[in-house]
Amino acid sequence: MALLKDPPSGVEIDMNKISSNLSEWIVDVTGAAGTNYEGETFQLQFKFGPRYPFDSPQVLFIGSNIPVHPHVYSNGHICLSILTDDWSPALSVQSVCLSIVSMLSSCKEKKRPPDNAFYVKTCSKNPKKTRWWYHGKF
């Protein structure tokens, strides 16, 4: 809710694309100045299940511009522990967006994860179904 009133810089909710039952949101994020993603905009899709916030939302990049990043697959799936293992019901959409922006900001080299091709071919549509065994630290 705070996100609607007072979004942090680089994060903006697309009010037209919020589904009528509020279970699906699209958030526009902008790469922070002075980073590899400066000036780029990306779209994040949030899907909230019936057990949200106790169950984590499904979050992925959608649209034509998927950030090239060692923890982002070309299908938009994001490897970020707070989206699965380290999810806390006290995390808001805003704090998730901020974590993703800061993940982008800390990237030194723009490249895809090394197993991108294999993963994208074999993974489930829902990134939450992937058993992420690793935690990227940023």
Partner: peptide
Amino acid sequence: TIEKDGGCNHMVCK
């Protein structure tokens, strides 16, 4: 046994 489904090579054993 640990299965890898993703890219990061920093693993944390469950």
